[in-house]
Design a protein around this nucleic acid. Sequence first.
DNA 1: GCCAACGTTGGC
DNA 2: GCCAACGTTGGC
Length: 169
Amino acid sequence: MIILTLCYEILGMSKKYWLMKSEPDVFSFDDLKARPGGTDHWDGVRNFQARNFMRDEMKKHDLVLFYHSNCKEPGIAGIAEISKEAYPDYTAYDPKSLYFDPLSAPDKPRWFMVDVKWVKPFRRTVTLKEMRRVPELRGMKVLQRGQRLSIQPVTKEEFDEICEMGMGE
DNA sequence: GCCAACGTTGGC
DNA sequence: GCCAACGTTGGC
């Protein structure tokens, strides 16, 4: 068992942890729950760094902190997981889509998306405000000034800490 | 609604 | 390849 765990570590196959931002007015954590199977595709990412995380690093069963941005109480609403690894974001091909990009085509896709599955809610949202007060979370990108990246890696320690905050009183 | 900070674009 | 202008993000 230890050997197997080691192999996974060395091959980079161990589970990763992520933070994904969404504006709740557009697509909330509850909206995800309401989708068939609690699953939806994460379309519309048009930033290269965020795309690369999705395309190159996200694996099935990775866990996700679902973050509500640009709203009254920014913070983490609950847990989701990656249920399908990266595939072309077809909204880029649709001239009527908000996310249309003429530089992307089916034979040469520029943008990618993953499927995300609702896992469980917190008892309460873990707000940005309270995250700022926790020394263990100080390194998180989402707390850095001017940080706009909509998909960010988080450490297991950060992930666990936030789960505790969300599941506690 | 403001505006600082950022990523992207495009002229040179 | 520089960098100013622009559009967007997102906390406040």
